[in-house]
Design a protein around this nucleic acid. Structure first.
Lengths: 232, 232
DNA sequence: GCGTTCAAGACTGCATGCAACTTCGCCAGG
DNA sequence: CCTGGCGAAGTTGCATGCAGTCTTGAACGC
């Protein structure tokens, strides 16, 4: 008899009707962390905006504790900055830090492309080819928003293929902060060039040429860095 | 002249109009974070050890709140892992993750050495030369502990000279986790080889040869990775 | 009119309370 | 003796209370 009496267990109406074994439970703090993070990288929360713990707590209908946890994690990610007794604000990524971010991205994409080439699989080729094809079409059409998405997807695919969790995590962090920085510094154009450079990376990967892939990725990011540097 | 409200979007001058005010925070959470972090990387807290919030709170004579904040940050750093309702433990860095860490370190040191060479100053040369001299003596004497310190100091000096905050932060994170992983996997030896490789990096940096410095750093870390890979 | 001062409000950071969950030791049953 | 379930203790994660600090706004003096 498993259920003679379950005194203290309050059948609080969470949402799941019946789930005997606990599975992936989600803390409130985790949900809120991801929610605020998405708002920041998506631009819904602009740099400089205050991350008021009481306000966010009420908005998410929770107490201040999990919100505070989330804010702490965002600060640790570099997506927010806090000053003593003054709370946290969405980080302002200055020009210097943006350059530094790209210096890091240069190195990380360089390493990632090499690993992706070393761990090449036909499935990767298919996926990348699909992305490249659509990307070229989109670039010719001049759809900048979609261009950004496909650009991100291309790089994401490569860093998945690299199978290096540390590199992937670092690139995620860089990507988030770069997107945040781009809220201030919008550099448009160069879509076709990006596609061509992606193509070069793609070909080197598929050719099983790690060094070539690394060099192509390096050249790609380095050019983006130069573009950025010129616009500052 | 108190600004009535935050100017929404101001054509930022890109420089620091506000910096003078005090910034060094002395929050309890910050102190505790650094204290626990030091204990982890120094090996005082071994992988798998539970980070009990109540116990640490009593030890530091504070409430559980700042301790909890510190633990959250440690988890975000990858120095601890937590599972739902089971708290956090000092992270166990497995072989796969250690390899991944070195893949990342390879890229980061590669980039850092290049930047250090580009931003070379005579002061850097003096410092590195001093470290190298002592390092060679220590290596010949076979003092492994001191070797580790000097090795870390050498790389730290280079990444300071690179003046890239993002790269520096990432390398700090990698360094911490690598040290943590070394608590399980002790790979000794190769001291003299390391000194020779450091010497090569040093000479390339002082020669104002960014590519050479990058290559030398890459070869250095890559060899360490190979040594590690063989011992797994 | 303009600049200064000061008090009310709001928020941060730490302390503490509380329900639920996990773990461990103990005891009954086979 | 070993297996299996039960109860108690300790923790976790969220909620809430509280003092110190910063910001905002308006009254006040010049």
């Amino acid at each position: 008899m498993t259920s003679t009496s379950i005194p203290p267990q309050q059948p609080t109406v969470t949402d799941a009707p019946a789930r005997p074994p606990a599975e992936e439970s989600v803390r409130a703090g985790e949900v809120i962390y991801r929610a605020i993070r998405d708002r920041i990288v998506s631009g819904e929360l602009r740099p400089g905006v205050r991350l008021s713990v009481p306000a966010l707590a009420e908005e998410f209908s929770v107490s201040r504790s999990p919100v505070r946890d989330a804010v702490i994690r965002l600060v640790q990610d570099g997506l927010a900055t806090e000053t003593m007794n003054r709370g946290a604000v969405v980080a302002r990524i200055g020009g210097a830090e943006l350059v530094s971010l790209y210096e890091a991205r240069e190195a990380l994409e360089w390493a990632t492309a090499r690993l992706a080439a070393q761990r090449y699989t036909p499935a990767l080729r298919r996926t990348l080819l699909g992305l490249l094809t659509e990307h070229r079409t989109v670039a010719e059409a001049g759809d900048f928003a979609r261009h950004l998405e496909l650009d991100a997807a291309f790089h994401q695919e490569i860093r998945q293929a690299a199978q290096s969790p540390v590199l992937a995590q670092m690139l995620d962090g860089v990507q988030g902060r770069v997107r945040l920085a781009m809220r201030s510094t919008s550099v448009r154009g160069g879509m076709m060039l990006a596609v061509d450079e992606h193509q070069a990376i793609f070909e080197a990967i598929c050719a099983g040429d790690p060094e070539g892939a690394a060099e192509a990725a390096l050249a790609h990011i380095r050019r983006l860095k130069e573009v950025l540097h010129d616009s500052l």
